[in-house]
Amino acid sequence: MQEEQNYNFAYLDEQTKRMIRRALLKALAVPGYQVPFAGREMPMPYGWGTGGIQVTAAILEPEDTLKVIDQGADDTTNAVSIRKFFQKVAGVETTEKTEEASIIQTRHRIPERDLEEGQIMVYQVPIPEPLRFLEPRETETRKMHALEEYGLMHVKLYEDIARHGHIATTYAYPVKVADRYIMDPSPIPKFDNPKLDNSPALQLFGAGREKRIYALPPYTPVKSLDFEDHPFETQTWDEPCALCGATDSYLDEVIMDDKGTRMFVCSDTDYCTTRREAGHVGPDAQAVGEAAE
């Protein structure tokens, strides 16, 4: 793709990059703490991943290979749009293969394949403050983090248990980082929460509209909040991926017709494709193959 000459490498000017870089270093030094940063207006709307894009732009070097996913998929429109943006303004290599990527920018998922040392995950974050829905005021939530006063969060989760018999949070499930800060893992399904824990990859979080950056260094303990008598648990499915037969991946439900027929397929498109290329076959793979022809 033609590299855009009218903008600086990776779009942002050097002063903005330095400001973000300084924030990233402090975010690493205090894992899980949200560092305020002077987020800039980006050429895509707030809510489309401006925080993640600014973080990626600030860490990107010309030799990087970038993967962008939205909902786990490389081919969703927003993932395509962000990937094209970086091809255009940074001229970097892009890939859909998780193992080939040095930087993976994501919205709402963590790839199924285990991440490796040296890889960097960049999460797009809409509301970075895990306490925001319990307390709308920044002045108050900031105090709560300072004092490590997280009782309100436990009360909320416990109310869930009292009402429903279990915790009723399924995504953006709060975690405690290195036994200190409660952190919002971005709206990933809680299925992905265990992947945050002690990951060999570096994980960076950018919230553009709310102007916050936070980070998890590799090998950082990340614990999903729970109670002794109600331990944290992830989602499970009764059936495997219809296409590749995986039983260990997060499945999307696809409505097939107006009679309520449904099928379940991997949300991680690279994971599913790689498995199918290796010869794994799901129960509906043949039917789908025929229909596509």
Binding site: P45, Y46, G47, W48, Q71, H108, P126, T170, R209, E253
Partner: peptide, 23 residues
């Protein structure tokens, strides 16, 4: 600009999280 971005971003796919809630 912030407000319209966040309101309109609801147009973006959210099916992973919706799947969680559906379950």
């Amino acid at each position: 600009v912030q407000a319209t971005g966040f309101v309109e971003h609801l147009k973006l796919p959210h099916y992973v999280d919706f799947q969680s809630e559906l379950g």
